Simulated assay, not measured.
Amino acid sequence: MFETPRLRLREFTELDAPFIHALVNDPDWLRYIGDRQVHSIDDAIGYLRAGPMASYAEYGFGLWCVEHRATGEAVGMCGLLRRPTLPGVDIGYALLPAARGRGIAFEAASATIERARTVHALPSVLAIVSPENAASIRLLERLGMQLVGPRALTPDTPPVLLFECSFHTRGAL
Rank of each mutant, 00 (worst) to 15 (best):
W64N: 03
W64R: 10
W64T: 08
C65H: 08
V66E: 09
V66N: 07
V66D: 01
V66C: 02
V66Q: 01
V66Y: 08
E67T: 09
H68S: 04
H68P: 00
H68D: 08
R69K: 15
R69I: 07
R69S: 14
A70E: 15
A70N: 04
T71C: 10
A74L: 10
V75Y: 01
M77V: 13
M77Y: 02
C78N: 00
C78T: 09
C78L: 01
L80F: 03
L80W: 05
L81R: 11
R83G: 03
R83M: 12
P84C: 08
P84M: 11
T85R: 12
L86R: 00
P87K: 11
G88C: 00
D90E: 15
I91N: 03
I91A: 03
I91Q: 00
I91C: 14
G92M: 06
G92N: 01
Y93I: 08
L95G: 08
A98R: 15
A99V: 12
A99N: 09
R100G: 02
R100C: 08
R100K: 13
G101A: 10
G101S: 10
G101H: 06
G101K: 06
R102A: 14
R102Q: 15
G103L: 01
G103P: 09
G103V: 06
I104A: 02
I104G: 06
I104H: 00
A105Y: 05
A105H: 02
A105K: 13
A105M: 12
F106L: 15
F106H: 14
F106D: 07
E107H: 04
E107W: 08
A108D: 00
A108S: 11
A108L: 13
A108Q: 09
A109N: 05
A109W: 04
S110L: 12
S110W: 08
A111L: 07
A111H: 12
T112I: 05
I113T: 13
I113R: 15
E114F: 07
E114Y: 10
R115Q: 09
